[in-house]
Simulated scan of single mutants.
Amino acid sequence: MTDELYLAVEDFRNNPDFTPREKLAAAFAEQYAIDHTAIDDSMWSQLKELFSDTEILELTITCGFCVGLGRAFQVLDIARDFDVLWSREPPTD
């Protein structure tokens, strides 16, 4: 992955440089982080079209780990080296 593509992840839906699998994985991860209870049958169907069951499990566990780690850092008030808006939620400043 190039630095340019990494920096373009914020607009993954509209960027033709991302593959369909990358776009779907990013959409799943975003939904998992913002409102995991809203992941519906449509999302699971899309995932099953492009990913194996093992890949879906790995993606789900990775999302859970990353969300959990981010929350632990927040609870522990661990400073960040950079300012990133991790979701579409408005900043709390």
Rank of each mutant, 00 (worst) to 15 (best):
M1L: 08
M1Q: 08
M1C: 01
M1H: 04
T2Q: 03
T2H: 08
D3G: 00
E4R: 15
Y6K: 13
Y6R: 15
A8F: 01
V9I: 11
E10M: 08
D11Y: 06
D11S: 14
D11H: 14
F12Y: 11
F12S: 00
R13F: 00
R13H: 07
N14Y: 01
N15A: 07
N15D: 10
P16E: 08
D17F: 04
F18N: 00
F18C: 12
F18E: 04
P20F: 00
R21N: 06
E22L: 11
E22N: 08
E22K: 01
E22C: 06
K23S: 00
K23P: 09
A25S: 13
A25I: 02
A26H: 03
A26E: 02
A27T: 11
A27R: 15
F28N: 02
A29R: 03
A29G: 05
E30I: 00
Q31N: 10
A33H: 15
A33W: 05
T37Q: 07
A38W: 04
A38C: 03
A38G: 02
I39C: 04
I39D: 03
D40V: 01
D40K: 08
D40N: 12
D40L: 09
D41E: 13
S42T: 14
M43D: 01
W44L: 08
S45W: 09
S45T: 13
S45M: 12
Q46F: 05
K48R: 15
E49W: 06
F51I: 02
S52D: 06
D53Q: 09
T54S: 03
E55L: 07
I56R: 03
L57T: 14
L57C: 10
L57M: 11
L57G: 03
L57E: 08
L57N: 05
E58P: 03
E58A: 13
L59E: 01
T60G: 12
T60Y: 02
I61M: 14
I61G: 02
I61L: 11
T62L: 13
T62P: 03
T62E: 07
C63D: 11
C63Q: 09
C63F: 04
C63A: 12
G64C: 03
G64H: 06
G64K: 02
G64D: 01
F65V: 14
V67C: 10
V67Q: 05
V67S: 12
V67F: 04
V67M: 00
G68N: 07
L69K: 06
L69H: 08
L69I: 10
G70M: 02
G70S: 10
A72T: 12
F73M: 14
F73H: 15
Q74E: 09
V75D: 07
V75L: 14
L76W: 05
L76P: 01
L76V: 05
L76G: 06
D77Y: 04
D77K: 14
I78S: 06
A79S: 06
A79M: 00
R80A: 11
R80L: 10
D81L: 14
F82S: 07
F82G: 00
F82T: 10
F82Y: 11
D83N: 07
D83T: 13
V84G: 09
V84T: 13
V84E: 11
V84Q: 00
L85S: 14
L85P: 13
W86E: 10
S87H: 05
S87W: 15
R88H: 12
P90A: 15
P90S: 12
P91W: 06
P91N: 08
T92M: 11
D93M: 09
D93S: 10
